[in-house]
Design a protein around this nucleic acid. Structure first.
Lengths: 138, 138
DNA sequence: ATTGCTGCAAACCTTTTGCAAGAAT
DNA sequence: ATTCTTGCAAAAGGTTTGCAGCAAT
């Protein structure tokens, strides 16, 4: 295993959250400044092929990566952009239905559910009209 | 209403599926060649503010747009990239749980569920190792 | 010698923005 | 006159790729 791969693996192991390629690059570069973003993308790709890493699309912005582990889903607030992880078991029922009705095998790792987080629901109450901030955030 | 807006609205009304900004641009340009992509993005933004249009992120590639109507979810195959719409009612149970447990208000319009479609499940059977095509498609 | 990894720079795709011109009020 | 909308071109964000060099075999 090369220095780049070791460094990227270390970063992924050291964090509890999902990281974008850019965040991973920055952290790797804090100890190995010469490692380039393209290498990070290439290594991440390779790790995915090996099943070590999975990624998810959170809707806005960059793809995020994390070590394969306890599968979890993501909820993303379309107003403030915050994302958080939710237990994979929330998807059990839907998984069964999708499989039965459409033959579609849901991937819990990969899911991003959009909506309004508790804080933003409070702020804007019932379905206020979209504002620029909300669109931007998302 | 300006020509650009009318044209874009017509395109959206004439299709039954989700369209990317690029597809919308191409279709609009078939009758009004001078309309630019930036205008399409701006008009789409405005339509969203008005609540006429909603968009969804399908994971890979570009954002897609459609007229606000019967809300539906999307499932996207991570292998072949195909996306299809699924009834919003599939999200009922999950919506309730997310609200109760996390105060999170799911937006059914906006959801993209990843997984393997029936065809691709057949092709690769049980959990074949990821291949380049799959990564690419997604 | 051959193969594989890497850094760099450039390319790419999607989306946004600054600006000056034109249309509508 | 003022305001809104547009086209164009450039920029921006995220990601991929060509290439030459270096490392490991």
């Amino acid at each position: 295993m090369t220095a780049a791969k070791r460094g990227i693996a270390d970063v992924l192991a050291a964090t509890g959250t999902d990281l974008s390629a850019e965040e991973i690059t920055q952290r790797v570069q804090s100890t190995r400044p010469e490692i380039s973003p393209s290498t990070v993308y290439r290594v991440l790709d390779e790790f995915e092929d090996l099943g070590i890493v999975v990624h998810a699309h959170l809707g806005h912005g960059a793809t995020v990566y994390h070590l394969t582990g306890a599968p979890h889903g993501h909820v993303v607030c379309t107003r403030c952009g915050t994302s958080s992880e939710v237990p994979a078991e929330l998807f059990d029922r839907m998984e069964g239905e999708l499989l039965k009705r459409f033959g579609f095998a849901l991937d819990r790792h990969h899911v991003a559910i959009a909506g309004l987080c508790a804080a933003c629901r409070g702020v804007q109450g019932r379905a206020a009209p979209a504002d620029r901030a909300r669109r931007r955030a998302h």
